[in-house]
Amino acid sequence: MRKVIVSLLITVAFNLASASSESDTSLAKLTSMVQSFSSLSYQGVFVRSQGVAMNSMKIRHGLIDGVEYESLIDLDGDKIEVIRIDDSVICVYPDISFANTAAPVSAPLKQFKELNGDRLLEGYRFKLSKKIELIAGRKAQKLTLLPKDSYRFGHAFWLDMENSFLLKHDTLDAEGKVLDRVQFTDISFNPTLKKSDFLPRLGTYSRHVVSVTPKMTDNKWHFTWLPDGFAPVWRDARLLNDRTAMLLLSDGMTSISVFVEPTDTIKPYSVMEMGATTVGEMSRSLLTDILRLTIVGEVPEKTVEKMLMSFAPRTMQ
């Protein structure tokens, strides 16, 4: 009997050590992935699909004379471009009238630049595949983040075997259905890039985007419930205007934005979903105020609804 118990203890210890080793290896690969976005020179085309919507983008990134250059062009529709030279950002539109109505182009790779390993371990298990796959003509290894609960989505990353660059990313629901996908169809590293490759095209309208340091205010609210691993990114609330404040939470992978605005009317709970993104809204009477609450995040609808109902003033603690 003692031999059986000892054998079981050894097996459990081995499994725990293996899981810990796989987590350490996976976190190291994710860290290398994030570093590759800014340290490598690359040029390629990727496709992003969200639900039934799909569009393709061309990205160029390089370090020229010690300065970081990046260009992102929407290849569908009117070919809006965003050029970044270190911290200077330029949006390029077909003309001035189009600039007043077009939504800015965003790079989906940037969402992973704030990965937090400690929080990831609270919310996800890691699975590193031994199978080597081919993505955009490059050898890649698949790393899957399996959620420990039903309040977040799963993620699958295909990382370049040579440099850990992210070649493909899937956001997955509980059944493994792909909700959102970013995949390179063509990618080359160390391309010959010049400063002239990052100039606005002739005949277009360019607008410099100035990053304004937002005003902050005391965070008067909290959540009586949050999924494990989720915590505020900012200690204070960010003021978007005279009426609207914003809170930001993250589990180390996924961010959830919370917008708080005073209102005069009670609005029932409503929700909209597009791919992995869920937008929930409702008005609640809290103490002497009626607040319109809006939550936006790449999380299941049940998470958004439960967070809306868990929102409370700190004085109620």
Results as ranks from 00 to 15, higher is better:
residue 244 T to M: 11
residue 244 T to I: 12
residue 244 T to Q: 08
residue 245 A to G: 00
residue 245 A to M: 11
residue 246 M to N: 07
residue 246 M to C: 10
residue 246 M to Y: 07
residue 246 M to V: 10
residue 246 M to I: 08
residue 248 L to I: 13
residue 249 L to T: 03
residue 250 S to R: 08
residue 250 S to E: 08
residue 251 D to N: 04
residue 251 D to G: 03
residue 251 D to W: 02
residue 252 G to F: 06
residue 252 G to T: 05
residue 252 G to R: 05
residue 252 G to C: 07
residue 253 M to Q: 08
residue 253 M to R: 04
residue 254 T to I: 01
residue 254 T to G: 01
residue 254 T to Y: 01
residue 254 T to R: 01
residue 255 S to F: 11
residue 255 S to H: 13
residue 255 S to C: 11
residue 256 I to C: 02
residue 256 I to D: 00
residue 256 I to K: 06
residue 257 S to A: 14
residue 258 V to W: 02
residue 258 V to A: 02
residue 258 V to F: 03
residue 258 V to K: 06
residue 259 F to E: 02
residue 259 F to L: 13
residue 260 V to T: 08
residue 261 E to C: 12
residue 261 E to M: 14
residue 261 E to K: 15
residue 262 P to G: 11
residue 263 T to I: 09
residue 263 T to Y: 02
residue 263 T to F: 03
residue 263 T to S: 11
residue 264 D to S: 15
residue 264 D to E: 14
residue 264 D to Q: 14
residue 264 D to F: 13
residue 265 T to V: 14
residue 266 I to H: 01
residue 266 I to P: 00
residue 266 I to M: 10
residue 267 K to G: 07
residue 268 P to R: 13
residue 268 P to C: 08
residue 269 Y to V: 09
residue 269 Y to T: 10
residue 269 Y to N: 08
residue 270 S to E: 13
residue 271 V to L: 14
residue 271 V to C: 13
residue 272 M to R: 15
residue 273 E to N: 14
residue 273 E to D: 10
residue 273 E to M: 13
residue 274 M to T: 14
residue 274 M to L: 15
residue 275 G to F: 08
residue 275 G to W: 01
residue 276 A to D: 03
residue 277 T to S: 12
residue 277 T to H: 07
residue 277 T to W: 02
residue 278 T to D: 06
residue 279 V to W: 00
residue 279 V to H: 13
residue 280 G to K: 08
residue 280 G to F: 05
residue 280 G to Q: 03
residue 280 G to W: 01
residue 281 E to P: 00
residue 281 E to M: 15
residue 282 M to Q: 08
residue 282 M to A: 10
residue 283 S to C: 09
residue 283 S to Q: 07
residue 283 S to T: 09
residue 283 S to L: 04
residue 283 S to R: 02
residue 284 R to H: 05
residue 284 R to F: 04
residue 284 R to P: 02
residue 285 S to Q: 14
residue 285 S to H: 11
residue 285 S to P: 04
